[in-house]
Amino acid sequence: MLLIQNIRLSRILINTWRVDLIMIASCTIAYFTREYLIAHHFQVSAIVPTVLGTAIAFFIGFNNNQAYDRWWEARKIWGALVNDSRSFARALINYVDGDNTTSITMIHRHIAFLYSLKASLRGTVDEIYIKYLTDDDLKEVAKHKNMHNAILNIQARDLQKLSKANQVDGFRFIEINEMLVRFSDSMGMSERIKNTIFPTTYSYLTKVFIWLFVVTFTLAISDTAGIAAIFLGWLIGFVFVSTQINGMSLINPFETNSAGVPLNSITRTIEINLLQMLEEENIPEPVKPINEEYIL
């Protein structure tokens, strides 16, 4: 997630340089094609790039709105996980009577749940969760493809044991179990966003329309702008391309990039909060920003 208000021009160029080269080549070909092949036969009307520009604006607007909706929903889900995690730990620490060993184990197991879910959403291998699980837990979750779901199942089983041992009363049992349900809901909503592919036709058609616009715009203004039409064609195309790429960077909010939801930072924040609530000494450091520009 970006931390600064102003985006560096270098980052924009890094994201668009390949498309920029294609646009410059297309504008150059379009200019010389008009000059030496079609200049004496017909003139490309300015209405053509005008209509294409309008269509592109609609497509980019739709794409970017949908992309931001996906990103914002993902951010809200993980914001809710932060709040629910703190409430979960607070309830286990303060509402469970007797020996607090099970409560500590469940809070550690919850941290493992978060790291396992994060790794699954990003398609990476993150073994931090291992240190927060007991040997028996590790053996059990190893049998499941969805490890974070298996962890929630163990949590529910331990909560039931606390209830049978009369270490938590009925009202508190319901309250803590509802938090487990919310964790499951957040997990399912996150997986839905990850597994739902944004329709590729929208992105593909937008790219095609931008290319057609750049070519027709260059053809339309070559008569009056001369060779400067190459630069002007690229410049107008750059505006559309950079806007479209900026929106598409949000389409997969759990990816490891500067625009994604900062799962590393959020998970580490929850880990720090919960360990401090347990008054443990070995507290990890917060995730540091990369180049003071963004955080993962």
Results as ranks from 00 to 15, higher is better:
155 Q>L: 13
137 D>T: 05
158 D>W: 05
170 G>K: 09
142 A>K: 15
145 K>F: 05
152 L>D: 07
133 L>R: 01
149 N>W: 02
158 D>M: 13
155 Q>G: 11
142 A>W: 13
143 K>M: 15
135 D>C: 00
167 Q>W: 05
167 Q>M: 03
146 N>D: 14
172 R>D: 12
136 D>I: 03
152 L>C: 13
170 G>T: 09
138 L>G: 01
148 H>R: 05
161 K>V: 08
174 I>E: 12
165 A>V: 06
161 K>D: 12
167 Q>N: 09
139 K>E: 08
146 N>Y: 10
141 V>M: 11
136 D>W: 06
166 N>P: 03
136 D>H: 07
168 V>R: 13
162 L>E: 01
140 E>I: 06
162 L>F: 06
167 Q>K: 08
155 Q>C: 15
163 S>K: 11
159 L>E: 14
145 K>P: 00
172 R>Q: 11
172 R>M: 12
161 K>P: 09
144 H>K: 14
150 A>R: 13
140 E>C: 07
163 S>E: 07
174 I>M: 12
134 T>Y: 01
167 Q>V: 05
143 K>E: 08
158 D>C: 02
159 L>W: 14
163 S>W: 08
135 D>E: 05
160 Q>I: 15
169 D>Q: 01
149 N>M: 03
147 M>S: 04
135 D>V: 00
157 R>Q: 09
134 T>Q: 07
174 I>S: 07
167 Q>P: 04
144 H>S: 12
144 H>W: 11
154 I>D: 08
152 L>N: 11
159 L>G: 11
174 I>Q: 09
136 D>G: 04
152 L>F: 14
141 V>E: 03
166 N>Q: 13
156 A>P: 11
148 H>P: 00
166 N>E: 15
167 Q>F: 02
137 D>P: 02
146 N>H: 13
164 K>A: 13
163 S>V: 03
165 A>C: 06
169 D>M: 02
168 V>Q: 06
165 A>S: 14
169 D>Y: 06
168 V>N: 06
151 I>C: 07
163 S>R: 08
159 L>Y: 15
173 F>P: 08
166 N>R: 12
149 N>I: 01
145 K>S: 07
163 S>P: 00
148 H>C: 03
141 V>Y: 07
145 K>A: 05
134 T>G: 03
146 N>E: 09
172 R>F: 13
144 H>N: 13
145 K>Y: 00
171 F>C: 02
173 F>C: 11
144 H>P: 07
149 N>E: 01
143 K>F: 15
154 I>M: 14
135 D>Y: 02
135 D>W: 03
162 L>V: 00
142 A>M: 10
153 N>Q: 07
144 H>M: 10
164 K>N: 14
166 N>C: 04
152 L>G: 15
162 L>Q: 01
153 N>M: 10
160 Q>G: 12
145 K>W: 04
133 L>K: 00
164 K>C: 04
147 M>L: 13
165 A>N: 11
151 I>S: 10
162 L>T: 04
172 R>W: 11
138 L>D: 01
159 L>V: 05
160 Q>A: 13
169 D>V: 01
149 N>L: 02
160 Q>L: 15
162 L>A: 01
141 V>D: 02
139 K>F: 06
154 I>V: 07
159 L>N: 14
133 L>D: 00
156 A>Q: 15
171 F>E: 10
153 N>F: 11
153 N>S: 13
148 H>Y: 06
153 N>K: 10
145 K>L: 04
